[in-house]
Simulated scan of single mutants.
Amino acid sequence: MNDAITTLPLLERRTLAESAYAHLRELLVSGRVAPGERLSLRDLSEALGVSVMPVREAVSRLIADRALEVAPNRAVRVPVMTRAQFRELAQVRAGIEGWAASLAATTRSPAQLDGIAAAEAAMRKARASADPSIAVALNRDFHFAIYRAAALPTLLEVIGGLWLKAGPVINLDLRHSNDRLSAGHALRCHAAALAAIRDGRPEAARNAVAEDITRAADFIIEKGGLPEAPAG
């Protein structure tokens, strides 16, 4: 049999696994699953319209990324972070994502600036929305509009990995209430970041994004949504 034909099924499987991985990454980064939530391979495969095999491959990759974990009962679940772990992750994010914002202040194109401004405006409008889950996607859109403008694909990949771990936690409260949005910290920091990037002020852009991340972490920790120590 022709070698090209014999390798075709493997290529198709790899494509499905990559697609499943991309979809599951988005699920985590956008905060649409919560810490501790169990994920059924069968339910995921049915939702994606594929067999269990590519989903299993995608989940295995996410476990290797430490974005998912296997519980003692062998169930796959979203990891639960302690307060100390989340605080550490927030500190790393503030440094790296703040740097990305500082780069965006000098590298962004006019079209990218328009995209950042549009995302910031949409987030402000979401403050009055009756559906707080809308803010989850809009917050991510704003941040990644900035990070893409930094024009460093490797840096964007690193930040994506950080959001894989942080997404379920940082968006948990936004999924259920708009308290953090109503407090105004995020909107003020977003407006400051936009102004700094528009005016070409790298250090101000860095500080605005770092403050946004730090204040969000403080808010979530003070609200008591994270455990002091690992479970069991």
Score class of each variant (00 low, 15 high):
Ile96Phe: 14
Phe86Met: 02
Val92Ile: 10
Glu69Trp: 11
Asn73Gln: 15
Arg66Cys: 15
Gln91Ala: 12
Arg93Leu: 00
Ala75Ile: 14
Ala64Met: 01
Phe86Glu: 01
Ile96Lys: 15
Arg93Asp: 04
Ala90Asn: 01
Ala67Glu: 01
Gln91Arg: 11
Ala64Pro: 06
Leu68Asn: 00
Leu68Ile: 09
Asn73Met: 11
Pro79Arg: 08
Val70Met: 14
Leu89His: 01
Ala100Ile: 07
Ala67Leu: 05
Arg74Gly: 04
Thr106Lys: 12
Val92Phe: 00
Val78His: 05
Arg87Thr: 14
Ala94Tyr: 00
Pro72Cys: 03
Arg87Met: 13
Arg93Glu: 02
Ala90Cys: 11
Thr82Cys: 02
Arg87Ser: 12
Asn73Trp: 12
Ala90Met: 07
Ala90Val: 01
Val92Arg: 01
Arg83Lys: 15
Gly95Gln: 08
Met81Gln: 11
Pro79Val: 04
Arg66Thr: 15
Ala84Phe: 12
Val78Thr: 04
Val78Asn: 00
Glu69Gly: 14
Val80Gly: 11
Arg66His: 15
Ala84Thr: 15
Arg77Cys: 02
Glu69Phe: 13
Pro72Asp: 04
Val80His: 07
Arg83Trp: 04
Ser102Arg: 10
Val92Ala: 00
Asn73Gly: 12
Trp99Ser: 13
Ala100Asp: 10
Ala71Phe: 08
Ile96Cys: 12
Phe86Arg: 02
Ala71Met: 09
Ser102Gln: 09
Thr82Lys: 10
Arg66Phe: 14
Ala94Trp: 03
Leu89Glu: 05
Ala75Tyr: 14
Glu97Tyr: 14
Arg83Ala: 09
Val80Pro: 09
Met81Gly: 04
Pro79Ile: 07
Leu89Ile: 06
Ala105Lys: 05
Arg66Met: 09
Met81Ile: 13
Thr82Val: 07
Leu68Ala: 01
Arg87Ala: 15
Asn73Leu: 12
Trp99Leu: 15
Ile96Asp: 08
Ala84Val: 11
Pro79Gln: 04
Ala75Leu: 09
Asp65Pro: 12
Glu88Gly: 14
Ser102Met: 03
Ala75His: 15
Ile63Lys: 01
Gly98Lys: 09
Ala105Ser: 07
Val76Gln: 00
Asp65Lys: 06
Val78Lys: 05
Val70Gly: 09
Ala90Lys: 06
Ser102Ala: 08
Leu89Cys: 03
Gln85Asn: 11
Arg66Val: 14
Glu69Thr: 15
Met81Asp: 07
Gly95Met: 07
Val80Ala: 03
Thr82Pro: 11
Asp65Met: 04
Gln85Ser: 13
Trp99Asn: 10
Gln91Gly: 11
Leu103Cys: 02
Ile96Asn: 13
Glu88Met: 11
Arg74Met: 10
Glu97Gly: 12
Val92Pro: 08
Val70Phe: 14
Arg87Trp: 14
Asp65Tyr: 03
Arg77Pro: 00
Ala105Gly: 08
Pro72Phe: 06
Arg83Ile: 13
Thr82Gly: 02
